[in-house]
Design a protein around this nucleic acid. Sequence first.
DNA 1: GTCTTATTGAGAATGATACACAATTTTTCA
DNA 2: TGAAAAATTGTGTATCATTCTCAATAAGAC
Lengths: 128, 128
Amino acid sequence: MYSTSSLKAELNERGWRMTPQRETILQVFQNLSEGKHLSAEDLHILLNEQGEVISLSTIYRNLKLMSRMGILRELELAEGHKHYEINQPSPHHHHHLICVRCNKTIEFRNDAVLKTGAKTAQKEGYHC
Amino acid sequence: MYSTSSLKAELNERGWRMTPQRETILQVFQNLSEGKHLSAEDLHILLNEQGEVISLSTIYRNLKLMSRMGILRELELAEGHKHYEINQPSPHHHHHLICVRCNKTIEFRNDAVLKTGAKTAQKEGYHC
DNA sequence: GTCTTATTGAGAATGATACACAATTTTTCA
DNA sequence: TGAAAAATTGTGTATCATTCTCAATAAGAC
Ligand SMILES: [Mn+2]
Ligand SMILES: [Mn+2]
Ligand SMILES: [Zn+2]
Ligand SMILES: [Zn+2]
């Protein structure tokens, strides 16, 4: 799990900067209960309710940044917009099953699926 | 693999109709070589080049319809828009591996992954 | 503290997809 | 066979998520 300081360290390593907005966003996802996913809009509203106003532009920018960094996962949950969740490492990692007809969505854990993906990525020369 | 007549039968079964546009779209995907995926825009251009003009609205409508029917698969390939391919049944069914950083995309086959999905769906009471 | 440069916020722009509606086809059935 | 009913199409427009632009601000380096 990412702490504020490890986020800062990793940002600086890449020539980027820590900001109060980035810290706030990280905290929201860390405190989000299992199985919940937030869209950019969801996050914006949630922060407004908490009295922490961050512009929608900044939210979009940082959700994308933190996804590329591997801190968040960007999900396509059949609702026409992206959702995000914290990117948990292996024992807590989960998959999503989404019905293409009614959009019913669930989470499940399965090591074989995870390993197949990792093994295939390695075999195909994926670099990251 | 869907034939023109089985598409017609299945459409009529649901109170829908066969049209030349639907037949044309089905044929394009049937003749598409393995590993290729088309966006709505791609399909529109490809049809124009073949002299078969179908409006973009009709293309969007029918790509969605045929996906809900299970004839096509709607793919989120990290390019900001949807792609489609024919939905091959089990022995030919494949998965996509997409790098979240560089968007490298490959196809691979794996029965275990397929079965895990199916089993999980059944256990969770997915209806279709 | 100052300097450099990344980041933010506000608003405008973009782009994929959905929608509205009149004209046209399919299908049904008398 | 030929209306009548209903689904589908094409054109144009609307919507909505996301990105872009740019001036103002703030983080990090020295
Ligand atoms: Mn999840
Ligand atoms: Mn494919
Ligand atoms: Zn379903
Ligand atoms: Zn990559």
